[in-house]
């Protein structure tokens, strides 16, 4: 059972109110070569470590939030609006 909190304008809300939106990835350039496009479409980094990711507040503010989370520990290293500095965990 994962458990952590995400900061919204209405305070810290439990992750059970959110839906996962996945890791943040750079957009695909329209003229990208096939290989790059295929990687972008079908592969995810699935990081074992620090990841920037999106969460949608489904049962609440119905807005998107970007956080930095350590996927190994589920510790939120930067809440929405916060800067993440490497090693600041």
């Amino acid at each position: 059972m994962s458990h952590f909190h995400i900061k919204t304008p209405f305070g810290y809300r439990p992750v059970s109110e959110f839906s996962y939106g996945g890791e943040i990835r750079p957009p695909l350039a329209p003229d990208a070569p096939d290989e790059e496009a295929i990687d972008h479409l079908w592969l995810r980094a699935n990081v074992d470590g620090v990841q920037r990711e999106r969460w949608f507040h489904t049962s609440g503010t119905r807005r998107w939030y970007t956080i930095v989370r350590d996927t190994r520990t589920n510790l939120v290293l930067a809440q929405p609006g916060e800067e993440y500095q490497e090693g600041s965990a």
Binding site: S2, F4, T73
Partner: peptide, 17 residues
Amino acid sequence: IYEGPMVLALADDHVAH
């Protein structure tokens, strides 16, 4: 005890997170 950290506890008439 789960990440977060979150501790799940059983009381007589409720469950506490």
